[in-house]
Amino acid sequence: MTGARADLAIAWAIARKDALSELRGRQAAGSTLFFAALVLLLFGFALGPDSRKLAEAAPGLLWLAIVFGGLLTVARLHQVETDDDALDQLARYPVDRRAIYLGKALAGLLAMAVLGGLLLPVVGIMYSVDLLAAGPGLLLTLLLGAIGFAAVGTLYAGVTVRMRAREVMLPLLMLPAIAPLLLAAVKATTAALAGDPLGEFWPWVQLLAGFDVIMLIAGGAGYGFLLEE
């Protein structure tokens, strides 16, 4: 097997292992979805019954719910490695560190994509937003946002996984880093939902894509150092 194919096989094995653990784990993914939906509901209560105001706020609230749910998800994907010191074993396998990062990020992407996909109809119903009108633009934004979040989340979960106060440190470090992603994702979602009357959609999507590329490169380069003791 060539180097690149072997690395992809390793990344896929890690992502599959994490997905199985997530699906079978006692802290099932369902609790994260429930938490994110609860965030949407509470924001809805806070904004009041004005349906126009709710619809205007929907893109921002959707992404806040994804961010809060995503923080739990990426933390849990690394929690699997701290049980029984599996991270130490993972680090000792004779494989390229970038393949390990890619595998963990892929697992994060799968989880984020499922989370975002399930939250969309919740937003649509709760905030009276016509999601079908946004069409593929919304799905593209969701995909790029999930990639960026998984890329950053995997890197910072690697930074904090050995910390005692990792539950606090992960959001503290990660939230500032994803500010550009959050801004671009909310703007692109707003434009997609409005039918892009001002032609703002593609510039924000390009920013999202650029953010993803930069973070994937940075994560691939930096994650290996985090695995070392």
């Binding site: 653990s21 079978r24 784990g25 049980d83 010191d85 396998y93």
Partner: peptide, 26 residues
Amino acid sequence: FLAHATGLYDDLTATENLRFAATMLG
């Protein structure tokens, strides 16, 4: 290396744990 901690994944089966290791070991 066999360490004190076994480094196994609790929610995978014995076969899945070894298959994962086999992949990682090429």
